[in-house]
Amino acid sequence: MSDWRGMLDAVVRERGRALFGYAYVLTGDRDQAEDLLQDALVRAFRSGRRASSVEAAQAYVKRAIATAFIDRARRAAARPVAGGDLQDWVAYTPKTPDHAPRVEAALDLQSALLTLPPRERACVVLRYMDDMTVAAVADTLGLAQGTVKRYLSDAVGRLKEAMPEVVFAESESVPVDVREGGAR
């Protein structure tokens, strides 16, 4: 088996569930998540690219998932579907009542995430669910840090309106070098 095939097999075997979960959080739909993951794996391994480790390959596939998700959203926006938009779909999607409040809260959060534009959603998922720094999110999505901060600010504002009970961790602080006797 060639190197890239062995790496693909290892990534799917060892990290497939985590990658599927990431795709599912972005799409909100099992079938779409499976398709998105498949597209990302094809993108990541179609050129026979070699990765140095399973972690490196997973990071590459995650970036391909985010890119494919944003590309799909752009294509969908360019070709609107008759019968409404995402907002209408979210508003009329029946929510299944559940006995567990945590499951209900997760579904509500998922619905709120689905109302965000694709780039904002990708930034929120990477920052708060993958616990990445703003710099890492910017690097992963190929955006400027200021752009990521703006997307996060706008998205968190919308999510707080929809779900005031959800608490988002404050943004990263800037390290300050304090020296005795003032600056030198």
Rank of each mutant, 00 (worst) to 15 (best):
G28K: 01
H99L: 15
Y128T: 02
D177E: 10
A57Y: 00
L41Y: 03
R158F: 05
R121S: 09
A106R: 08
D139H: 06
E180L: 15
L159Y: 00
Q110P: 03
G21E: 13
Q87P: 05
R158N: 09
L114Q: 02
R72M: 12
G182D: 12
T133M: 03
K160Y: 03
R5D: 06
D154M: 09
K95R: 15
D154E: 14
L126Q: 02
M129C: 10
K95V: 15
K95D: 15
Q38P: 01
L107K: 09
L26Q: 01
V12A: 15
F45E: 02
G28M: 02
D31S: 08
R43G: 02
A135F: 02
V103D: 12
Y128W: 04
D31H: 10
A66P: 05
Q145T: 07
L26K: 01
L143M: 15
A105E: 10
S153G: 15
E104A: 15
P94T: 10
A77H: 09
Q32W: 00
M129A: 11
V148P: 05
G142F: 05
P94I: 10
S47G: 13
V134R: 08
V167H: 12
A169Q: 11
K62L: 07
A138F: 02
S173K: 12
G21Q: 12
R74H: 13
E14A: 13
